[in-house]
């Protein structure tokens, strides 16, 4: 698990340093938007990089990407993919894919009990865009 957290922090730092080279380290509790200056496309890049490294995509079905606000949230999301203490997923891996083997229907306990928070991806951005389009 430590390696997973380190991998995630390293990838986040890579992307953060493209914009803010002066930043030398990121902490799991820092806010991706407010503290680290990332935008939704940066998060998409982080997730794509992690999918290439880890070969899993927890956001395909398991976790709402809007719930991700910190590197710690990312770690928790990816930890779900590698967790072994839940029921096996029926036919989860009929493809070769990196879709998390867990909860292929997306009905994880976390998703049931925790509604998506307004996260990086921008429910706010999307709402603003929608308002903009309607006013045209």
């Amino acid at each position: 698990m430590e390696n997973l957290n380190e991998t995630i922090l390293a990838v986040v730092l890579d992307v953060v340093r493209e914009k803010s080279p002066e930043i030398e380290a990121v902490r799991p509790d820092q806010m991706l938007v407010e503290d680290l200056g990332l935008r939704s496309l940066d998060l998409a890049r982080i997730i794509a990089k992690l999918e290439m490294k880890l070969d899993v995509d927890p956001f395909a079905e398991l976790v709402a990407v809007t719930s991700i606000r910190t590197p710690g949230d990312l770690s928790a999301a990816y930890a779900k993919c590698f967790s072994t203490d839940e029921e096996p997923a029926p036919e989860a891996s009929k493809g070769t894919g990196p879709i998390c083997a867990k909860h292929p229907s997306g009905r994880s306990a976390a998703n049931r009990t925790r509604p998506p928070r307004a996260g990086l991806a921008s429910q706010r951005e999307l709402r603003q865009k929608a308002r903009g389009e309607q006013s045209q």
């Binding site: 998409a44 890049r45 794509a48 990089k49 999918e51 290439m52």
Partner: peptide, 9 residues
């Protein structure tokens, strides 16, 4: 394919 292109930039 974007999953490959995004990390490349």
């Amino acid at each position: 394919c974007l999953k490959g292109m995004l990390p490349q930039g």
